[in-house]
Design a protein around this nucleic acid. Sequence first.
DNA 1: GGTTATTTGTTCGTATGTATC
DNA 2: CGATACATACGAACAAATAAC
Lengths: 216, 216
Amino acid sequence: MNQSKRYLDIVRDLRDMIRQDNIRPGDRIPSERELAETLQVGRSTIREALRSLELLGLIETRRGEGTFLADHRNNMLVEVLSTFILQDNQSQKDVRETRQMHELAAIQAICADRTISQMGIWDGFRMRLSEEENGFQREDFVRELMVLSGNRLSLKIWVLLHKYSGNPYNGTVSKAEKERLLNILAAIEQQETDKAAQEFKTWSDGLLKERLRNDS
Amino acid sequence: MNQSKRYLDIVRDLRDMIRQDNIRPGDRIPSERELAETLQVGRSTIREALRSLELLGLIETRRGEGTFLADHRNNMLVEVLSTFILQDNQSQKDVRETRQMHELAAIQAICADRTISQMGIWDGFRMRLSEEENGFQREDFVRELMVLSGNRLSLKIWVLLHKYSGNPYNGTVSKAEKERLLNILAAIEQQETDKAAQEFKTWSDGLLKERLRNDS
DNA sequence: GGTTATTTGTTCGTATGTATC
DNA sequence: CGATACATACGAACAAATAAC
């Protein structure tokens, strides 16, 4: 009958209470002891619910003062969670664009940093491009760019978006692509940011069009 | 330094423990009593941290069995969230940089689209900037730019990052800022992409420095 | 400025439901 | 079945921060 997690019931009760009493952001919520009394649960249980909501950023507690509804103009966490999973056509387009946004930003970050843009690793790329046997994986190339940008959060977001954007980098580079990639590498080494980004974008867009043509 | 909110320290400790011991999704986490023993805190504090992570979907607890790292195969948001809910210094820097990355991309997208960049809405901005009574909210300005970019996914990510990046846009625009914002608007209307992006970046970086100075 | 009441922060002991062996 | 390990839950107690007087 009863769910085996009372603190989740408290979370629900708190939401209902906030709606029913029309508690606005910044307003104070009844104290922990008061809530324990009215909801007929222990104070520890109340605290588990409050701490959870606090980590989510929904409430704010100040020692000696009380608990307050967070000043969140846009609290879309739950909505974001649901809409992330529902993928319509517009969402897929957004995913592709956002993924490429992160890629271009990574290239710009690399070009801006002399110690990275002129490191010896690019020779390693060229070596691997030359080995025709294995076939150089497009995906590895882009991922290493993301890693080199140094922004781990951006890398993480990119990995997620890449999974959901139809994997345009699947496969190995052709001879024509090889030339283009070498151009991109040269531009990066010369710190020609705009040129590097533009060349990359052209390459990426071309792969995407090819991918969409094959799917239809 | 971190005297208050010990459960947040526990959240951090748990992340480190999971990384160090290489705990994979589905694996079991040490029991509450065991954690309380090793981390030298009360069991209630451990529970507050665990309940918070559970509500986020990062862990899963089963009565009589134990606590397990959540198996989040189909939930990409959870991974994004976990990256910056469990924050270290590098993560905070990444969050700020990634947020600005989305903002600059939004401006570039707006400039690239003639129908948007030359719409009448910019006059609305100027009107609201002129009304000195209310005080124009910086946050609203940036958010509307994100909305106008037309990428809903980028907007959602921005909303999330904005919450966790120290809210640099808190407050209203000063007279000096007003001039700068008008310059940005003019550059957008003229489709001067680079200038608009550069002006915006200068403005944003300035706010961030001010924010960091006040915090210390 | 000092005192007191209120509130959150934290710990501990105890009891109970549940799964595993 | 019993024994054990674990999560769930309660409530008392004290510490620390804050507000009101």
